[in-house]
């Protein structure tokens, strides 16, 4: 098990990495000076803003995160082809529907990631969350069986996300 420790030198390591990558992408270069500048920004900006945030989401399983990312990418492509066929196909066969998914994830980041993944992948859009954060309302473009959809979402996305965030 790998946990990211809260250190004083790098208070938000993932944000630092993201800032580093985004700076290099924005300037579209790998020049030495820009790498130095990116390192400086990646170190200084999180240090300046870390006082402002409360609640520290940690990533418990980094390799599972990478696997989850590629699985979602693959699902996005297959879901897109499905949705494209449904959009172009006959409207008479279309059976849209609402479903309420019971949530086990409790953290803010977990719910946000799950809702975004659901919106991007299997022909569903997440629409609303109940105030007690126990139910996520989704709209599916083609809903055969609500229980099947709920089971699929829980098994495919929620369990890995729970493991990644450790909550």
């Amino acid at each position: 098990m790998f946990t990211v420790k809260e250190s004083r030198f790098l208070p938000m390591p993932f944000h630092s990495l993201l800032l580093f990558v985004v700076w290099l992408l924005l300037n579209n270069t790998m020049a030495f000076g820009h790498i130095l500048l990116a390192l400086f920004f990646g170190w200084s900006i999180p240090k300046l803003v870390s006082i402002l945030k409360h609640g520290h989401p940690t990533i418990k399983r980094p390799w599972l995160t990478v696997r989850y990312f590629f699985m979602v990418m693959k699902d996005i492509i297959t879901a897109n082809i499905e949705v494209a066929l449904m959009v172009l196909g006959p409207l008479k066969k279309l059976q849209p529907g609402f479903a309420a998914i019971p949530l086990d994830i409790t953290s803010d980041l977990g719910v946000t990631l799950l809702a975004s993944t659901i919106s991007l992948t299997p022909g569903t859009v997440s629409a609303e969350i109940s105030e007690d954060r126990k139910w996520l309302y989704v709209h599916a473009l083609h809903l055969d069986n609500a229980d099947e959809l709920i089971a699929q979402v829980k098994q495919r996305y929620e369990i890995p996300l729970k493991e990644i965030l450790g909550c």
Binding site: A79, V83, F98, S119, L120, G123, H139
Partner: peptide, 9 residues
């Protein structure tokens, strides 16, 4: 609600 699916995906 169905129209949302086209643009997002």
């Amino acid at each position: 609600y169905t129209r949302l699916h086209g643009p997002t995906k």
